[in-house]
Design a protein around this nucleic acid. Structure first.
Lengths: 366, 366
DNA sequence: TTGTAGGCGTTATCAT
DNA sequence: ATGATAACGCCTACAA
């Protein structure tokens, strides 16, 4: 039980010929301070059980050598890594990025570090990524826009790691989640549009069957029904949440015999594409066509015209997810689902319907 | 050296009364398979040294129990965590997000996990964040848009962790980095604008003295000089890289006695604000004023009009950073700086200068 | 082909 | 107030 080469101590910080000059360990500090390692540990944790002068000396030496206790060794013994995993479809998605920001800040406030992992929106990959996170013994996991959702129930038991979902896209029974009020948001948009006199309102959704699209589309239809406007299947088209696809979808809408006077987009990225397609045809927004989005991404208020959309407090949702995860991690079982409010932000991309502003008989077509 | 309670084995996966039902360990698997732990280890690492049937049985049991070797325990003994730290100013910055995406994908391909940390563009925080990463024993660190730059030299020795910087904002001697060709990019923009006949070209920069602004501004001035256009200090204003500030800056420019006919913006976020300000005054782009950006963010091609800008291969830069970090981690010393090309993307936001298209004498002012 | 015996750098539990 | 000593879960000799 001897200390390896005694001469090593002094040359510790120099890479004196050794390939991997390891970081100083608690024992190195102990030796330097002529105390035992437990004492070093106590001193560095500000334990009152150590004589002030001793503690002072130890802290000085630790600072001089740049010693920092290994979080991995600590994690091994304490059985918690003070680490959480964050799974996103991709960080280049502004929605995910904002959520990540909220998660990261909150985690940091509590002294937790976060592992970032991309699922590429692939369910298989999402699952394997979660497993890898478990392998790293994270204390908890947050998944945004999960493509797996309900399937977590069985996994949860096995992984034995609390998981919180943000905008779960395939919700099932009883997983902990933070969701935006899709229905209320979409409803508010539709009320706004209908109030402006629009009757031919198109919807550009998402073809993947995600929960957010399902709910927003449902509210679209319901609002139509309540206003006594018949649902026209030709006006409800599918994109994929991206801008390029939205352009195609919008062009299809523009090619219709009777163009819509307003387009309700699944999200802001889709609206961005729709606006581009409309402008490319020389049409004006909102004079010719009104456009709405959903999310209120950072650029939406700066578009020309500024986009009327539903604000989703993405960062806050990340914070809530992290806060709820902390509760779960500390043993609370009663977290379940949280729903955050969606707020309509009226900006310049919506205006009165053409017909409502007095259309010439000629342009009324037949 | 006895195995704790023998009866524990069977009930392992159930949280049979215990508070923290720990994950199964290698010893649990060993016991279940009636072999020693090293054999389990070997089997799971596909070592040829273990009898096929034994290996098969072990793997089966491991799969059934959902056993996954603890990465933290492994990290302790192997002295490498297969983990890297990524420090960004904030993930909600689209530039950082793209770089993060490249880093993440590449790291993942190599079986590495990445810790995401926000510096909030605060030098102090950046340093402390890096220290925390070192405490977690990451094998390497990548910092985007570092606010510390040169100061890493001393830190590097102490931390003993390789670091690669992406678009270092305060470059000093000899830190490993991946940089965009700021000068060439800015120069290309200016050549383009000047070629279009612009003579009053404004520049909206960044007030923080960052390297990217310094270099882009320098090229702006140089291009002006080469074209024989006198530099007008009133046309070179400062924003902070954000959209809101850019609007103010642009408004200032618009209030000038002699408005610029083109605005060269420090980055796309700034251009976004400039465009908004211009449109808000009822001016047209590019008919009245041309606008250029830098970065080519995901939304830039969809603006109205689409933004002429300098494409920065952000994701690729993240990949390169990660690749170079791997080299550093495996002992190579010769990585140093990498510069990636900047490519001008001409889109609709730039056009011939007003004067060049034939201005009426009256509007030529005196 | 398999098992035994450390040790990685901490924290935790005892003594003293 | 401090020091032995034993885990934590894994890997890696070395021994059998």
């Amino acid at each position: 039980m001897f200390e390896k080469e005694p001469g090593r101590t002094a040359g510790l910080m120099h890479s004196a010929g050794q390939r991997a000059p390891r970081q100083p360990s608690i024992k190195d500090i102990a030796r330097l301070a002529h105390v035992s390692h437990p004492t070093v540990s106590r001193a560095l944790h500000n334990s009152p059980l150590v004589r002030p002068e001793t503690a002072e000396k130890i802290r000085r030496i630790a600072a001089e050598t740049g010693y920092r206790a290994s979080a991995v060794a600590r994690g091994l013994v304490t059985r918690q890594t003070r680490t959480v995993g964050l799974v996103v479809t991709t960080v280049s998605d502004p929605f995910a990025a904002e959520v990540a920001c909220g998660v990261e800040q909150t985690a940091n406030d509590y002294g937790y570090a976060v592992f970032l992992a991309d699922s590429n929106a692939d369910p298989k990959r999402e699952r394997s990524v979660v497993q890898e996170l478990a392998e790293r013994r994270v204390d908890g996991i947050i998944v945004t826009s999960s493509r797996v959702g309900a399937l977590y129930l069985p996994l949860l038991k096995q992984l034995n790691v609390p998981i919180v979902l943000v905008n779960d896209q395939f919700p099932g029974a009883f997983v902990h989640s933070v969701m935006i009020a899709n229905r209320a948001g979409s409803r508010a948009v539709m009320k706004h549009l209908i109030g402006l006199g629009h009757k031919r309102i198109a919807y550009i959704g998402d073809r993947n069957g995600y929960q957010s699209d399902v709910e927003r589309l449902a509210s679209y239809k319901q609002a139509l029904a309540e206003a006594g406007i018949e649902f026209d299947a030709k006006l409800a088209v599918k994109g994929n949440g991206g801008t390029a696809t939205a352009i195609k979808a919008m062009n299809g809408l523009l090619d219709l015999d009777r163009q819509p006077t307003a387009v309700c987009c699944y999200n802001d990225m889709t609206a961005l594409g729709a606006m581009r397609a409309i402008h490319a045809r020389g049409l004006r927004i909102p004079a010719d066509i009104s456009v709405t989005g959903f999310d209120d991404l950072f650029f939406s208020g700066y578009l020309d015209p500024p986009l009327t959309t539903v604000h989703q407090p993405m960062r806050r949702m990340g914070e809530i997810a992290m806060e709820n995860l902390f509760k779960l991690m500390s043993g609370e079982q009663s977290v379940a689902q949280a729903e955050v409010k969606a707020k309509l932000i009226v900006r310049g991309s919506t205006g009165k319907a053409k017909t409502a502003r007095g259309l010439t008989p000629k342009s009324r077509r037949r």
